[in-house]
């Protein structure tokens, strides 16, 4: 099938950047989206043009490295699917696709479709952990965790840190990402001692990184490839308010 791509090309952080049109006359419907970009890049190299830079690694939907906007949707049209797991059978002959990088103040563009997401790491460094030095843990079965809590914690822990939530949010908020970590740890008994400081520190860091505020639009949930639920934001807000009230 024939696919027309319009791709954001930007040499580096200081370049203005622009959309460039590419024709792909022979896209196989069994290909993944990124394999289509590989084919485009091979064509570009053959024509002595610089290939399109895009982030990717596992191509299994788990590392969180890939992602771009496809016709205004983060990771493209298929719910619960990262860009690398999206296959061309979901498109049809003649489709025109607009590919742009994540856009957010906190995620400056590095080149073409590649952005800098290190702000996410700094949010985790602010408090997204349980402080347990290696060697000091009791037996694994000393702490019991109700199955349902473990499952809900796992639902939140499934976040891959790709940044689609931020890219899709009109406020460029990092609430779903931050809330997911707060929920993951806060749902487990091991996460209780630091629960309140964690919420305060992580929320403050997100603000400092220039992520916007959450206004409950819910677009993050709609595009999250791991289908993390808005409920994690409610948990984050709950922990934050409780911590603020108790003066921590």
């Amino acid at each position: 099938m024939r696919i027309t791509l319009h791709i954001w090309r930007q040499r580096n952080a200081n370049d203005a950047g622009k959309m460039v049109r590419y024709e792909l006359p022979n896209v196989n419907h069994e290909m993944s989206f990124l394999e289509m970009l590989d084919v485009l890049n091979e064509d570009l190299i053959a024509k002595n043009e610089e290939p399109v830079a895009f982030d990717h690694d596992c191509r299994e939907g788990i590392c969180g490295m890939c992602g771009c906007m496809v016709n205004g949707m983060a990771h493209g049209p298929l719910p619960g699917t990262t860009l690398c797991q999206l296959h061309m059978r979901h498109f049809k002959d003649g489709d025109e696709l607009y590919l742009e990088p994540w856009r957010a103040k906190a995620f400056p563009v590095v080149k073409d479709l590649v952005v800098d997401r290190t702000a996410f790491d700094r949010i985790i460094a602010a408090g997204g952990y349980i402080s347990v030095a290696t060697g000091s843990a009791p037996d694994g079965n000393a702490v019991m965790v109700p199955k349902e809590d473990a499952e809900r914690s796992m639902d939140a822990a499934a976040c891959i840190g790709c940044g689609a939530c931020v890219a899709m949010c009109p406020n460029a908020a990092a609430a779903l990402f931050t809330g997911a970590k707060i929920a993951h740890l806060g749902l487990l008994p091991q996460g209780q001692p630091e629960r309140q400081q964690r919420a305060i520190a992580m929320v403050a860091q997100a603000k400092q990184e220039l992520f916007g505020s959450c206004t409950n639009m819910g677009l993050c949930e709609a595009v999250c490839p791991k289908e993390i639920k808005l409920e994690v934001i409610a948990r984050m807000n709950g922990d934050f308010i409780r911590a603020s009230l108790s003066g921590r």
Binding site: Y129, D139, V143, P146, K147, A150, H184
Partner: peptide, 14 residues
């Protein structure tokens, strides 16, 4: 296993 449980790894439970 002990270390990972303490860190909050959400292992499957019975």
């Amino acid at each position: 296993i002990d270390q990972c449980v303490a860190q909050g790894v959400p292992f499957a439970r019975e």
